[in-house]
Design a protein around this nucleic acid. Structure first.
Length: 428
RNA sequence: AGAGGAGUGGCAGAGUGGUCGAAUGCACUGGUCUUGAAAACCAGCGUACCGCGAGGUACCGGGGGUUCGAAUCCCUCCUCCUCUGCCA
């Protein structure tokens, strides 16, 4: 969530920046935050004064009892009755104001970075670069990945349907091996680039969901285990970033750089349709995530470095790719700037999103109470960033489609040692 | 899962109804002494909110309650430890 002080200091710039997201009533919302905050302050002051009075009275009463002045003590007690009532009322009012303020702040998304293009849909995203002007053309007999994975017995959706339901594929044979190879390759690359590997829990509590911003806004996107009130993670961002919730980091410990492999679970309520076949959209998928906690002045340079890391990965897999800067309308709620990576899936003739790299600035840090002590000894909110490096299923889809040959599927060279084979072939 | 015990400042650890935001030790910061260092000594040393400031308020795992007054009593939740049970 945004800091009230930031809203106070940059009111007009914010309204201008928010226009890129195309949200209505933003000025109203910001004004009401400031109003609520002022009300909160004066209620606080009033309450503090009342409490001061009753604290003093209580001390006097104690003193009077000690001196054996029962009557005077009892007299003083009478006075506290009305004070108590008043402060109880005020306390409740203050709590309500604080709740309203927090919920108002929770409803306001992050402020888009100046470079974010205005726009409503993914059509308005800004193309930063494309790896090739010549998209691969396959012959007419080229098959989409959902056919290929059957031909080569790589993934069984029917089995997944049986044991769980739609969107939970069962990887088999060289398909399962490919998943494992990609996870190991991505983790190795991240580790080599200086990201310390962690293995977090893949179910988290509500506080963690709130910390990174999945809750309360996107409740419907996560699987909720109601009997223990826990959530299956939609991305490793949740547990990994929350590792640092409620902490004050030493300046010397920044940047914090982590990578993690986790399965990810998404309900994808309402986003299903005939256009999502095969691996294009799943309820459970595998992903390696990179996360950083940095000093504010470094966060955009770090964002570029993370983009470069992801680009290196995609390039090494020999897939055609492009990088987009998301427009205001497509930008995630908590993000200030996001770059998406898409790879070209040649049989579907479609670009598929395989990575999203974002700078959240202090938006998550404010919810997380994630701060560091700067050189002056002041506690400052850190900036958080994360990126997929990478999400597996669509990478697999593109690899399988783009590299199909007469009697097999060629695998990129970088995976050879991880796979133990160079070509996916039919079982004899 | 059942029974019992415990959660206090960076750490250790006092404190069981008022003078406790909290003893003491360690750590840390500044100073004195010293050629330098150590030791010793002196001083400082939690967080958040409000206030120009003086200062005020809140916080002893979280939430609620009793009381004029709660770290201290009660309820509830969470976490940890011990024993019993179960189980990769």
């Amino acid at each position: 969530m945004l800091q009230v002080s930031a809203i106070e200091d940059h009111f007009d710039e914010m309204i201008l920046a928010f226009s890129k997201r195309g949200i209505k009533n933003i000025e109203e919302q910001l004004r009401s935050v400031l109003q609520l905050n002022n009300k909160r302050k004066s209620a606080q002051q009033e309450l503090d004064a009342l409490l001061q009075e009753s604290n003093q009275l209580a001390k006097q009463i104690g003193q009077l009892y000690k001196e054996g002045k029962q009557d005077e003590a009892n007299e003083a007690k009478e006075q506290t009755i009305s004070l108590k009532e008043k402060s109880k009322e005020l306390g409740e009012a203050l709590n309500k104001l604080e709740e309203e303020l927090t919920s108002a702040l929770y409803n306001i998304p992050n402020v888009p970075h100046p470079s974010v293009p205005a726009g409503q849909t993914d059509e308005d995203n800004e193309l930063i670069m494309t790896s090739t002007d010549q998209l691969p053309e396959l012959g007419d007999d080229a098959k989409p990945h959902w056919d290929l994975i059957q031909d080569y017995d790589l993934i069984d959706f029917e089995l997944g349907n049986k044991i769980t339901g739609a969107g939970f594929p069962v990887y088999k044979n060289q398909g399962a091996r490919l998943v494992r190879a990609l996870i190991n390759y991505f983790l190795d690359e991240a580790t080599n680039a200086g990201f310390a590997e962690v293995r977090p829990p893949i179910v988290t509590n509500e506080a963690s969901g709130r910390g990174t911003g999945q809750l309360p806004d996107k409740e419907g996107q996560m699987y909720h285990i109601t009997d223990t009130d826990l959530y299956l993670i939609p991305t490793a961002e949740v547990p990994v970033t929350n590792l640092y919730r409620d902490t004050i980091q030493a300046e010397a410990d920044l940047p914090i750089r982590n990578c993690a492999y986790t399965p990810c679970f998404r309900r994808e309520a309402g986003s299903w349709g005939s256009h999502v076949r095969g691996l294009n959209r799943l309820h459970q998928f595998d992903k390696v995530e990179i996360v950083q906690v940095v000093k504010p002045e470094n966060s955009y340079q770090v964002l570029d470095e993370m983009v470069a890391h992801v680009e290196k990965l995609v390039k090494s897999l020999e897939l055609p790719y492009r990088i987009l800067r998301l427009c205001g309308g497509d930008l995630g709620f908590t993000s200030a700037l996001t770059y998406d990576f898409e790879v070209y899936s040649a049989a579907q003739k479609k670009w598929l999103e395989v990575s999203s790299v974002s700078n959240f600035e202090a938006y998550q840090a404010n919810r997380l109470k994630l701060r560091y002590k700067n050189a002056d000894g002041k506690k400052v909110l850190a900036h958080t960033l994360n990126g997929s490096a990478l999400a597996l299923p669509r990478i697999m889809a593109a690899l399988v489609e783009n590299n199909q040959i007469a009697n097999g599927i060629k695998m990129p060279k970088v995976l050879k040692d991880y796979l133990g084979f160079e070509v996916i072939s039919k079982k004899l």
